[in-house]
């Protein structure tokens, strides 16, 4: 059950579109900053395979400029550190 969180930046002025398209993808949860062009994304999938598919889908979103992972959990490495 990988759960990962990302900081996502949209292209200028496309924040709304990006939020909309991310929200429409199953397994994605979105939180947006109110005063910056920044979006936080949490993904939740059943296994590695699904995780890969989801990632491809997200990468296909046109308004997405940059995406960086912050933290992640998976059943095997609940205790492992991201550092």
């Amino acid at each position: 059950m990988p759960i990962k969180s990302y900081i996502v930046l949209p292209y200028d002025g496309e924040k709304e579109t990006l939020v909309k398209s991310l929200k429409s993808i199953a397994g994605c949860e979105v939180a947006e900053a109110t005063n910056e062009e920044i979006i936080l994304l949490v993904t939740d999938t059943q296994n590695e395979e699904e995780e890969g598919q989801l990632k491809e889908k997200i990468n296909g979103v046109k308004s997405l400029k940059f995406m960086s992972m912050v933290s992640g959990y998976s059943p095997e490495n609940i205790t492992s550190s991201t550092s």
């Binding site: 759960i3 990962k4 969180s5 990302y6 900081i7 949860e29 939180a31 947006e32 900053a33 109110t34 005063n35 910056e36 920044i38 936080l40 994304l41 949490v42 912050v70 933290s71 992640g72 959990y73």
Partner: peptide, 20 residues
Amino acid sequence: MALLSAMTTAATMFPGILFA
């Protein structure tokens, strides 16, 4: 927790950032 880490990180990168 994942969301919280992201928020904390965002806050260090973009001071003053606000969330709803």
